[in-house]
Design a binder for these strands. Structure first.
Length: 430
DNA sequence: TCTGGGGTCCTAGGACCC
DNA sequence: TCTGGGGTCCTAGGACCC
């Protein structure tokens, strides 16, 4: 096991043991915070926390903020108690997506076998790249150098025989580090780790395992499989037992397609009236519908999520007779699902809408609707409306077209939102 | 000022079909 | 009279990840 955080930023200089190590896990350091600091260099060296809102949590914290005990997913109020001088910035998803695309482009320049896990991390299988670029350790060093030179962002890289060991390795050399776990070193690396370090073992599973006296990966590897199955379920037990022996046959899968698209929103204040909830459902249906159409998908199942003031959460889904990408159809279904709950005097803090059962729009048989028949073969009215709205928003900005139901609730009349968005939109003449 | 928002996967029960 | 067995689809909830 070799750590080389201060490896020269040049390819080909890694000379440790990386035998049998085709898997890389690349993980950006404090990604959202680092992108913000890159936008505003005067923040460098200061504690920066991304997140917020009235009931927000920390989405990312710079290492300066982490020194005060600020962590991801911590409530913003707690973060500010620990670090009152922190610079708090609202998330800028567009900036993070753009930076992520640049990172992934650098990775895909090394090999097409790149599997993004989220905006800020990815697995690479470099077994086919070694003839071109040298050994895995050298490739990892070169990636780190290119990311920092071209993007001004640091990352950490784990190099190992399997995906999950590579992921554990990158976590243990952060920030701005690199850790290679050669095949012969895997069990020595894994066994002393606490079970909670394993990918897939969270708070609940850790608790269940602790009740059995299992605290380290070594303990896990010596536990009878039937005992494990009773404690955490068959699938998780078999998976964890294999991981504890260092076994993880999962290949890097570069072409994962999304299985669901969802949007949810925690309200600044709890909602009580059905009309208010309906308005949120419309806003969320509109957003989800747009994202489904943007990717040329259609969805078979529509779901809602409702979280009450006491944090109890319910979900309802309905599978439709045919596929849809229509905002109106998503909204109608969502509203029916909400009404089917028959809530009496609810206090609602979160509303969500989800589409699943996604398919390529072209891969699905066209549904003969009354609209279609009556229109003599025309595309149903709602789809044409959605298409027109999508086109207008692409040209004039996302707030250019809005349902009348949603107007005024942020004090923004339609005309002014359109002209404001206009400046950020494409510069085509109307 | 307790507890975001985007996802994936698993389980368990019931309906339904052959 | 004493109730098969396997497979698939659907739904609700929950664990987990970043």
């Amino acid at each position: 096991v070799g750590r080389s955080a201060d490896l020269p930023r040049t390819a080909g200089l890694f000379d440790g043991d990386d035998s049998g190590c085709p898997m890389l896990h690349v993980d950006m350091d404090a990604f959202f915070a680092s992108v913000e600091i890159k936008k505003r260099p005067e923040l460098r060296g200061r504690p920066v926390v991304v997140g917020g809102g009235q009931r927000g949590v920390v989405a990312a914290a710079s290492y300066e903020a982490r020194r005060y005990g600020v962590r991801s997913a911590m409530s913003m109020s707690q973060a500010l108690r620990r670090c009152p001088q922190a610079v708090v910035l609202p998330p800028d998803r567009a900036a993070y997506s753009a930076a992520s695309a640049q990172v992934m482009a650098i990775l895909r320049d090394v090999t097409p076998l790149v599997e993004p896990l989220s905006l800020d991390e990815a697995f690479l299988d470099v077994s086919g790249a070694v003839r071109l670029y040298g050994r895995p350790g050298a490739i990892a060093a070169a990636i780190r150098a290119r990311v920092v030179d071209q993007l001004g962002l640091t990352c950490s890289v784990g190099v190992a025989p399997t995906k999950f060991v590579a992921k554990l390795a990158s976590a243990r050399c952060k920030p701005d580090g690199m850790l290679v776990v050669p095949a012969a070193g895997v069990l020595g690396f894994l066994h002393p780790l606490p079970v909670g370090a394993l990918w897939g073992v969270g708070a609940r599973t850790t608790e269940s395992l602790h009740r059995l006296g299992i605290r380290t990966v070594a303990d896990l590897s010596q536990t009878p499989i039937d005992t494990l199955r009773r404690a955490v379920g068959v699938a998780a037990a078999d998976h964890l037992f294999a991981l504890a022996q260092g076994i993880d046959p999962r290949p890097v899968h570069p072409d994962e397609v999304e299985k669901s698209i969802s949007a949810d929103r925690t309200l600044d204040a709890d909602l009580t009236a059905e009309a208010e909830v309906g308005r949120e459902l419309l806003r969320l249906s509109d957003e989800v519908g747009r994202r489904v159409r943007d990717r040329s998908f259609v969805a078979r199942t529509v779901g809602i999520k409702i979280r009450f003031a006491d944090f109890r959460t319910v979900t309802r889904v309905r599978t439709l007779p045919s596929w849809t990408a229509s905002t109106g159809e998503i909204y109608d279904t969502a509203l029916e699902l909400y009404r089917s709950l028959h809530l009496d005097q609810p206090r609602i803090r979160l509303v969500g809408v989800k589409c699943e059962g996604l398919r390529e729009a072209g891969a699905v048989p066209e549904q003969l609707t009354l609209d279609l028949i009556a229109g003599g073969g025309e595309i149903p009215t709602r789809s044409r409306a959605d298409q027109a709205i999508d086109a207008a928003r692409l040209r004039f900005g996302s707030r250019a077209v809005q349902s009348g139901t949603l107007l005024g609730d942020r004090g923004a009349p339609a005309a002014s939102s359109a002209s404001r968005s206009d400046r950020n939109a494409r510069s085509d003449p109307a």
